[in-house]
């Protein structure tokens, strides 16, 4: 049991990293990876929301959608609605409980609704038939993988600002090429755990 959980977390952080091999969450990956500080904030906020979404998705799928036979056609609508309201709720709770924490990552929270990692995790959980614990771990792993990708990229981009990039490649183009090289490195993790 513990071994499987370990496989899930290694699988989603390294082997099938959500950014570099599943291509999820690329918009925020490009948008907020220019400074390490913001990258850490965004990564933490996303991990937090992802963990809660994974739990919520498990309960909605198994206690509402499947028993009432709604899964095929209401899945997308209900998941996205739950994610949107969950993000709103998290924002309010964090503001109430800890204004310091809210200042640290509150501004990233509204952006998370349209981060495709969140909906993807919700949709993948029923597909993979995970139980409650596995779902939670999967959500945490997805968040950590996204955070890792953001931090790696932001470190490189901070240095990239001082380097001599050809005019045409300035901006997103060079970031894509760098991400391609990082993705090549992540290919090296293939086969680390049985999937």
């Amino acid at each position: 049991m513990l071994k499987e959980l370990f496989f899930i977390i290694i699988g989603s952080v390294l082997v099938n990293n959500f950014v570099f091999s599943r291509f999820l969450g690329n918009c925020p990956f490009l948008g907020v990876s220019s400074k390490t500080e913001t990258a850490v904030g965004m990564g933490m906020a996303t991990t937090f929301v992802l963990t809660m979404t994974a739990v919520a998705a498990y309960f909605i799928q198994n206690f509402i959608l499947v028993p009432f036979g709604l899964a095929p056609f209401l899945q997308i609508v209900s998941f996205i609605l739950v994610i949107a309201s969950l993000v709103q709720l998290v924002e309010m709770v964090v503001l109430k409980i800890s204004p310091a924490l809210y200042n640290a990552f509150g501004i990233y929270l509204p952006l998370i609704t349209t981060n495709c990692i969140v909906l993807a995790v919700a949709l993948l959980i029923p597909q993979k038939n995970y139980n409650l614990i596995e779902s939670t771990i999967f959500g945490v792993g997805a968040g950590l993988g996204f955070t890792l990708a953001l931090i790696l990229m932001s470190g490189i981009r901070e240095d990239l600002e001082f380097s001599d990039v050809p005019d045409a490649l300035k901006g997103p183009a060079i970031v894509f090429i760098t991400a391609g090289l990082l993705a090549m490195i992540f290919l090296g993790f293939a086969g680390l755990v049985p999937l």
């Binding site: 005019d167 045409a168 183009a173 970031v175 090429i177 290919l187």
Partner: peptide, 25 residues
């Protein structure tokens, strides 16, 4: 084969965005 794997996607995307930037300029 690398072009069909994830790194190829990023590389092709980066180079195409660069070419489009050049044309636009």
């Amino acid at each position: 084969v690398i072009m069909l794997l994830p790194p190829g996607a990023f590389l092709v995307m980066g180079i195409l965005v660069g070419i489009m930037n050049m044309i636009a300029r």
